[in-house]
Amino acid sequence: MGLTRKDLLRMQELTADEIRLILDTAESMKQVAGRDIKKVPALRGKTLINLFYEASTRTRMSFEIAGKWLSADVINVSTSSSSVAKGESLKDTGLTLQAMHPDIVVLRHPASGAAEFLAKQLAASVINAGDGAHEHPTQALLDLFTIREKKGRLEGLKAAIVGDIAHSRVARSNIHGMRKVGMEVRVAGPRTMLPCFIDRLGVEVFTDLERAIADVDIIMMLRLQIERQQAGLFPSLREYSRLFGLTLPRLKGAKSDVLIMHPGPINRGVEIAPEVADGPYSLILNQVENGVAVRMALLYLLAGAPQAG
């Protein structure tokens, strides 16, 4: 049993067995992170290009560290300092990259479907590190890894994803991933931020935060994407925070061992109160830590995949 695909573009296309293989491999990779010498030669001679069209700290750093710990050569391209700033199209950037024979390209792009477009251009493996409001599969995988690490299992657990579901690629990837491994998923948020027909993904829909978090094992708060909020989806930050911010008093209505997750970066005091984010059940920093192990696992597994054309 191995991963035979060239690219990782979306959680929607992964099978439950593939998800389990990635999580199991990540467990072994996490052990490497605990060593004095954090380097293994598995990807020696492979080249990894991080191509980021959007700002990112943790995802880009996490891929960079993962690549370096596996001995790959890692190159970061950010759009502000590259030809993209001169107006080069994604297609031309892709062809330019191809000429340099990378083995793996990690792409973050504001347009949904950009990773799939690039994957068709390149012989290299493409990993989607977030494409518009579509998917962010490696975030979902590291979230599943963190949940499994804390709870010992995934099947039968109940999760509530709270916030701007409509704009959230993290929500979409997690919904697909959690459903595949047998978790129950709820989404909650203001009605303006819940996409039509979201229930067709097999989730329960709530517009009341307290009811949504009442008996779940995991609460996943989404970042309010203030940069995407020109459309007047809610009257004010303060009102959003009052109705959908996770605060200590609100948490009293949840299970006593509930786990709190957030993909980061957090808006302290908007969607999550500081004392919750820094509290004992918060897994926010575990998520960051596990992100490296999960990405190491993916780089390792994809590096054995057959290269197209």
Binding site: M1, L3, Q31, P41, A42, K46, Y300, G304
Partner: peptide
């Protein structure tokens, strides 16, 4: 587990399973 140190990684189709050291 020496999988990550093998000299035939990436030469065969599917990567071997990595287990824990």
């Amino acid at each position: 587990d020496v999988t990550l140190y093998r000299d035939d990684l990436g030469r065969v189709g599917v990567q071997p399973v990595v287990r824990k050291t």
